[in-house]
Design a protein around this nucleic acid. Structure first.
Length: 599
RNA sequence: GCCCCCAUCGUCUAGCGGUCUAGGACGCCGGCCUCUCACGCCGGAAACAGGGGUUCGAGUCCCCUUGGGGGCGCCA
C-alpha cells in the first residue's frame, strides 16, 4: 500500500524565510531527561560542548566498573575524550582521548551533582531491524548489545521494525525476527513499532524542515543522479549530489516529480562522539544533501530514524558501524530540528572466517539455523557477547554476569571473525554446566526444531519421552550424555539408543565390532547376565570384569561388543552405567539379538 | 576514486608508557586418565604488520607505508 501522498503545497515552499525556528514537538515519550539537558549543573552540561574534548558523561550503576577509579592526576595528562561517572562514586577514563580540559572538569565535578543530574535519565535503547530477511547473526548481536546495555543500566530496549521499504519488507521476516529474539530471550518493552505506520508523523517533520528552510525540493531524476555519479567517479571526485536544485526554489506542483532534500551545511565539520568509535569527524562538504522524501511522498530511512528515535525517547543508539556515516547525516537533522542527539555507539561488524563481511556463504544464517544446529540460547548469548567485547580473561558468562559486566567501553573497534569451533566449545560448556532441568527443557523445546536429517529421530524421541520409564532412563543418563555432547543435536544422537526400538540397527563401526568372535563372546556372557540377581551398576560391572578375567580378555574386548549390542554404536557413556540405567529385559534382549545373530 | 574506521598467536582477546623473556580461551600437537567417546589434568608450538619519530623507557603515544573493513541510493 503506497504512502499517503503528502500535501506538497502545504508549508515551507517558496523561499523560506529561514526562520530557523526549532520546531520541537514534545510527545510524552520524549519526556526523558538528557544527560546534557536541563536540570544538570552547568559544569556538567558544558562538558558536552568542550571545543575539542567532547566529554561524554554517562551513568552506570555503582559497582559495575571493573576498574576502580584511577586518580585524577593520571587521567589529566592522558587526554580523555570520554569519561564515565559511576553513580557519583567513581569515574573512569575511556579510549581515544583528546582533550585534557574536559577531564579536569570531570575530576573537579562534584560526584553528588553528577548523580543528581544523570540519575534522571533512564536508558532506552532500540533494536531496529529491517524485515527483509531472517534475523541474521550480526543483527542478533546488535540486539544483544542493545539489550545488555539497557539491562545493565536499568533501562529498556525497544523494538522497531524498519519496514518503510514496502517492496522488500515481508510479514514472514517480521515473524522470523521476533521468533529469533524470543529464542535468544532478548525481550523488548512494549509492542514492536512499525516505522511505516508512523509515516504521517515523518511527513509532518519534513514539512517542518521545509518551513524552517532546512530542506528544499529537488527535481533531479534517478537517471540524472546516476549520470552525475558516473561523471564524478570518472573525474575522481566524491560521488555526492552536486546540490544543483538547492537554490532553485522549486515548489510543487511542478512539471517533474519532486523529492525533498535536506539542506546540509556546506562548510564546517560534523563531529560524532561515538561511545565505541570515539570522535569521528567529517568535513561538511563530504556529506551531501540527502533525500528526506521520495517522489512518491514516502519518507526515507535517515529522516524516519531520527524522528522515531526522538519520539521514542531513545537515549542510546547502538548499531553496526555500517551506519556510521548515517550518524553524521542524522546528527545534522537532529540539529536542524533543534532536538537532542542521542548517544551513539557503532559496533564493529562480524566477519566471516575469511575476513570478509559475513554473508550467506559463511555463517550469516538466520538465528533459527543456529537453533536447528542445537545451540543453546545461553551459549549463543555468551559467544556473541564475547565477539568484540571482553571482560578481562573471562570466557564464560552467565546472563546475569553479562548484564552486570557489559558496557560499551569494553567493546573493541576492530571487526571479529565468526568462529564455529569456538561457538561449539562455548556451547559444550553450557551443555555440561547448565542446570539439569534447564537442559531437559531446552532439549524438549528443541526437538520440534531439529534439522531435516534428524527430524524423524527427534519426533520419535519426543514421543518416547512421554513414556515415564523412557524418560527415567534419559534423565538417569543425562549427566553422562551431556558431557559428550557439544550440541543438542549430538545429545539426541548420543541418546538415540534410549529411544530406539529393537532390533537395533548398529552403525557401521558397531557392526565392525560385532564380528563372529564377539558375538560368540556375547553368547557366553548372556546367561550370566540373565542369572544376575541385582541389576545395578556395581553388580553388572563386577560380573563383567570377572567374566573378562576368566576368559583372559581385556575389558575392552568385552565392553566394546556389549556397547555395540546395547547401544548400536561404538560410542556411548560408560557401558555399565548404560546397562544399569536401562530396563534389564531390554538390555538382555538387545544382547540376545546380537548373540544369536552369530549362530 | 573519495570519505571514515581498524591492525597483538590461525581465531576471539588481555594489555590503558616500565610489572611483557606479551597473559587467557578456542583450535592444533604430545602425554596422563580410560571399557569407547568425551570430560578432566599436564606439557608444547603459535602473535605485538613494516618504517620513522616522541620518551630515560613503546605492544602501549604521534606520523607514514602496507594490509583489511565500512560508507558513498528516491535501501535500510
Amino acid at each position: 500500500m503506497p504512502a499517503t501522498a503528502p500535501n506538497h503545497g502545504a508549508g515551507g515552499c517558496g523561499k523560506a524565510n529561514h526562520r530557523n525556528t526549532p520546531a520541537v514537538s514534545h510527545t510524552a515519550a520524549q519526556a526523558r531527561a538528557s544527560p546534557s539537558g536541563g536540570g544538570c549543573p552547568s559544569g556538567w552540561r558544558s562538558q558536552r560542548n568542550t571545543a575539542r574534548g567532547h566529554v561524554v558523561v554517562r551513568f552506570s550503576p555503582i559497582g559495575s566498573r571493573k576498574h576502580q577509579l584511577p586518580p585524577p592526576a593520571q587521567i589529566r595528562g592522558r587526554r580523555c575524550q570520554q569519561a564515565v561517572v559511576n553513580g557519583g562514586k567513581s569515574w573512569h577514563c575511556l579510549r581515544n582521548i583528546s582533550d585534557a580540559h574536559g577531564i579536569q572538569r570531570i575530576a573537579h565535578a562534584a560526584p553528588d551533582n553528577a548523580r543528581t543530574c544523570i540519575m534522571a535519565s533512564k536508558v532506552i535503547t532500540r533494536f531496529a531491524p529491517s524485515p527483509t530477511g531472517f534475523l541474521h547473526i550480526g543483527g542478533a548481536r546488535t540486539a544483544l548489545f542493545n539489550w545488555l546495555f539497557a539491562k545493565h543500566h536499568g533501562g529498556e530496549m525497544l523494538l522497531r521494525i524498519e519496514d518503510t521499504d514496502r517492496q522488500r519488507s515481508t510479514e514472514e521476516a517480521v515473524n522470523a525476527i521476533i521468533d529469533g529474539l524470543q529464542w535468544l530471550e532478548l525481550e523488548w518493552a512494549g509492542e514492536p513499532i512499525s516505522q511505516f505506520s508512523r509515516q504521517e508523523r515523518h511527513v509532518e517533520v519534513i514539512r517542518q524542515l521545509l518551513e524552517s528552510g532546512h530542506a528544499y525540493y529537488c527535481q533531479c531524476t534517478p537517471e540524472e543522479l546516476a549520470a552525475m555519479r558516473e561523471k564524478a567517479k570518472a573525474e575522481g571526485r566524491p560521488m555526492t549530489y552536486d546540490r544543483r536544485c538547492r537554490e532553485l526554489g522549486l515548489c510543487p506542483p511542478h512539471d517533474r516529480p519532486l523529492v525533498v532534500r535536506f539542506k546540509a551545511p556546506r562548510e564546517g565539520e560534523i563531529v560524532i562522539n561515538d561511545l565505541v568509535q570515539g570522535e569521528v569527524r567529517w568535513q561538511a562538504q563530504a556529506l551531501d544533501d540527502l533525500v528526506l522524501m521520495r517522489a512518491d511522498g514516502t519518507p526515507t530511512y535517515n529522516l524516519a530514524v531520527v524522528v522515531d528515535d526522538h519520539d521514542m525517547g531513545i537515549t542510546h543508539v547502538i548499531r553496526g558501524v555500517d551506519h556510521l556515516t548515517n550518524a553524521a547525516r542524522q546528527k545534522m537533522i537532529y540539529e536542524a530540528l533543534g532536538w537532542d542527539v542521542p548517544e551513539m555507539a557503532h559496533i564493529p561488524l562480524i566477519h566471516g572466517p575469511d575476513g570478509a563481511k559475513l554473508s550467506k556463504r559463511h555463517g550469516a544464517l538466520g538465528v533459527e539455523a543456529y537453533r536447528e544446529m542445537g545451540y543453546l540460547p545461553e551459549a549463543m548469548r555468551n559467544y556473541l557477547a564475547r565477539l568484540g567485547w571482553s571482560h578481562g580473561d573471562d570466557e564464560i558468562f552467565s546472563t546475569e554476569q553479562l548484564i552486570e559486566w557489559f558496557d560499551l567501553d569494553a567493546v573493541g573497534k576492530s571487526p571479529a571473525r565468526f568462529d564455529f569451533a569456538k561457538l561449539e566449545s562455548v556451547n559444550g560448556w553450557w551443555m555440561r554446566n547448565i542446570e539439569r532441568e534447564k537442559l531437559l527443557a531446552r532439549f524438549g523445546e528443541w526437538l520440534p526444531h531439529a534439522p531435516e536429517e534428524l527430524r524423524e529421530k527427534a519426533e520419535q524421541a519426543r514421543q518416547r519421552l512421554a513414556d515415564a520409564s523412557v524418560r527415567q532412563v534419559f534423565e538417569t543418563l543425562l549427566d553422562d550424555l551431556r558431557e559428550r555432547a557439544k550440541t543438542l543435536n549430538e545429545l539426541l544422537e548420543l541418546s538415540w539408543f534410549i529411544f530406539a526400538e529393537r532390533p537395533l540397527q548398529p552403525n557401521a563401526k558397531a557392526r565392525k565390532i560385532l564380528k563372529d568372535d564377539a558375538r560368540a563372546m556375547l553368547a557366553a556372557l548372556l546367561p550370566r547376565l540373565q542369572a544376575l540377581d541385582a541389576w545395578d551398576k556395581d553388580a553388572i560391572e563386577a560380573l563383567i570384569r570377572a567374566f573378562a578375567e576368566e576368559q583372559e580378555l581385556k575389558l575392552g574386548k568385552v565392553a566394546q561388543p556389549l556397547r555395540a549390542a546395547v547401544t548400536g554404536s561404538n560410542v556411548s557413556p560408560g557401558i555399565f552405567e548404560v546397562m544399569a540405567a536401562m530396563p534389564r529385559d531390554e538390555v538382555l534382549a538387545r544382547i540376545a539379538d546380537q548373540a544369536t545373530g552369530a549362530a
